Amino acid sequence: MTVGCGAEPAFGASDLQAPDRHGDRDAIPGLIDFAVNVRGTPPAFVLDAVRAGIGDLSRYPSVADEQRAIEAIAASHGRPAEHVLLLSGAADGFEMLPRLGVRHAALIQPSFTEPEISLRAAGVPITQVTLAAPWSLGAGTGDGVPDDADLVVLGNPTNPTSVLHPRAAIEALRRPGRLIVVDEAFADLTLGADGRPEPESLASCDWPDLIVIRSVTKTFGLAGLRAGYLLAAPDVLGRLSAGRRPWALSTPALAALTACLGEQGHAYCAAQAQTVAAERALMLDELARVGLRVAATPAAPFVLVEVPRATEVKRRLVEHGFAVRGCANFVGLGDGHLRLAVRPAEQVRALTAAIGQVTEEMGNGSLA
């Protein structure tokens, strides 16, 4: 089944359904931001690394700059440097996917919209493999992927459901002649039941048919800088990077990547993962207290909640000072869900109070 991917430029219901509309469009200055999944501002050691290179902006990014970032990433995941491709944000990696000569792509949905946008713009036939709620990839899920699909794309944890898929379920999608792309933009903030970091990440796995795309912009508060990386076998990297422009990343972005994947970066990330887990637990308690149902067990720094007439609730919350992420443009979802970034308890209590006021204004009388 191939699904259309049109987008309307005007703001309104059609705009909210456009695949290229992201949470940043809703995070209007002055609103309390539950729409964007970026964790605060960059830590001091990352800002110091970026500032240290500002005096060199008159020169092009050097091979040495790139190599330092590549070596930090490779060491972080126990991979050879030849398995690393630097990205100007994760979206840069999705834009490269059509260079693989894909004949038929299967997208595990609901999920981040950028892979579909890039593949469809290149004329690649797409099958939407839409999981049933609570959207967990399990045994037999691969039965819905067409046998001739030579590319399968999924997120782990998935945006916007916050579901973390088991590694074994992803491995079950492998077939001869097929590449698996895993978007791990939020993997560095996941914890196992035993507290182990990144329990389902495939970043350290050297399968020849695997592509892992990661970003540092969410955890380290660097969305405006655009920095990420891709991990894959050298022959796959060669196909992805063919014809790529020189100096693909700026000097500040390279400095930030090197810092984020270094020793200080690992310590900071581990602390952030613990903070997210604690804040998310308190947030779930507060949402349950006011009768909001969380749609799936969350593992990422955001949760998906069921809200009747979510688009109208989202619009009215702006009037109360809050930005939230609607889900009307995610395949398999619609006007019954909102995605909420994990935030401190005080902000969450203020949000739930505002949602209660909005539902009273709308005459619902109930959050459920």
Rank of each mutant, 00 (worst) to 15 (best):
V3L: 15
C5E: 11
A7T: 11
L16V: 07
P19M: 03
G23D: 04
D24P: 07
A27F: 08
D33Q: 01
A35H: 01
L47R: 13
R59L: 07
E66F: 03
E71G: 03
A81T: 13
A81K: 07
H83Y: 15
L86P: 00
L87G: 03
L87E: 02
G101D: 04
V102P: 11
V102K: 09
E116L: 14
A133W: 01
W135F: 11
A139S: 12
A139L: 07
G140F: 00
G140R: 04
D147K: 06
D147W: 08
N156T: 06
T161I: 06
A185E: 06
R196T: 15
P197A: 05
K218E: 10
F220I: 00
F220A: 02
Y229E: 06
A232M: 09
G238Y: 09
R239M: 06
A259M: 05
C260H: 01
C260D: 08
G262I: 10
G262Q: 10
E263A: 14
A267Q: 13
A267E: 12
Y268F: 03
V276M: 04
A281T: 07
L287H: 10
A300L: 03
L304I: 05
E306R: 12
E306L: 10
V307E: 01
A310F: 06
R315Q: 11
E319T: 15
V324E: 04
G326S: 12
A345H: 12
E346P: 09
L351E: 04
I355M: 08
E361R: 14
